[in-house]
Design a protein around this nucleic acid. Structure first.
Length: 289
DNA sequence: ATGTCCACAACATGTGGA
């Protein structure tokens, strides 16, 4: 498989973003796109975007419910074995359109829109934690190696992922149980590739519409790209597309874009160190061949 | 308390959600 450009973007209504979405696809030319908060039924999404996406070579898996939520996968490197929703996930009270999974270019990609939680203590907060546990179970059952789980997690993984710890005291997105749920998900073998790219910097993906938050960089990093180890090791570039947050009529989220080098041929095994740097016992694995 | 936006029901603006 050649190199792949993968992106995730919470568009905060695909319909409202119609003037920008197609132009963004043309400019950035991603091969695989995870969308969240399309806020459209499958029929309405197809009505607005089916033809222009097909023109651009994208296959589409949209999982929507209309007014709220709604996720999609766009791919021009194949789109197979689509699973809508998250089997085993709780509802609120009914199942919501918060996940869609497909195999694209050898990657098992899931676009996720994790419940917001609203407020610690709110039933929606408990729902959020249960939903995350179900997501973890799914990734563990399927195996993390070929997995990409990308989307709006509504969790800032650590304190550097918010502009002000004080501003989020008593709020969701930063509470220990949420962060522990995310850590449990990562423990299945997923890597937070944005944080690996920038170990220390404050890099945000979401800024409230209010109060000039974007202009003053009062943001949060809550849109994550999580990949299995073999995929993370193919990371060639990663950036947060702040341009998409500028200008008129933006989403309140910026896309995250990940470029992967082409997969190595044959086995994806451990790299064997050269003998001069290698094991102390002689007989390295490299000699067996 | 809240410098915004989005969708909906329904026609003016309120409501719920983020």
């Amino acid at each position: 498989m050649a190199g792949v450009r993968l992106a995730t973007w919470n568009v905060n209504s695909a319909k409202a973003r119609e003037p920008r979405l197609l132009g963004w696809l043309d400019d950035r030319a991603p091969d695989v796109v995870c969308l969240q908060e399309t806020k459209l039924s499958d029929e309405a999404f197809d009505e607005s975007f089916g033809a222009p996406l097909a023109e651009r070579g994208y296959a589409v898996a949209h999982h929507g419910e209309g007014r709220w939520n709604g996720v999609a996968l766009l791919s021009r490197v194949g789109l197979d074995d689509v699973t809508e929703g998250l089997p085993g996930a709780p509802g609120y009270p009914h199942q919501e359109a918060r996940a869609v999974t497909a195999t694209c270019g050898g990657l098992r990609v899931t676009s996720v829109y994790v419940p917001n939680g609203r407020d610690p203590g709110d039933p929606h907060y408990a729902y959020k934690l249960e939903w995350l546990a179900a997501l973890r179970d799914r990734v563990e059952a399927a195996g993390a190696d070929d997995a990409v789980v990308a989307g709006d997690f509504n969790i800032a993984p650590a304190d550097p992922d918010v502009y002000s710890v004080e501003a989020f005291a008593e709020s969701t997105h930063v509470t220990p149980p949420e962060r522990e749920a995310l850590a449990a998900l990562l423990k299945t073998g997923l890597h937070d590739v944005t944080r690996e790219r920038w170990p220390d910097e404050k890099v945000f993906t979401y800024w409230d519409y209010r109060g000039g938050a974007f202009h003053q960089d009062r943001g949060m990093r809550i849109d994550l790209v999580l990949t299995g180890g073999p995929i993370a090791s193919r990371r060639a570039a990663l950036w947060i597309d702040r341009q998409a947050r500028k200008g008129s009529g933006p989403s309140d989220h910026a896309p995250v874009i990940l470029d992967l080098d082409e997969a190595p041929d044959g086995d994806i095994g451990p790299v064997v160190p050269p003998p001069s740097l290698g094991a102390k016992k002689g007989g390295s694995r490299a000699k067996k061949a």
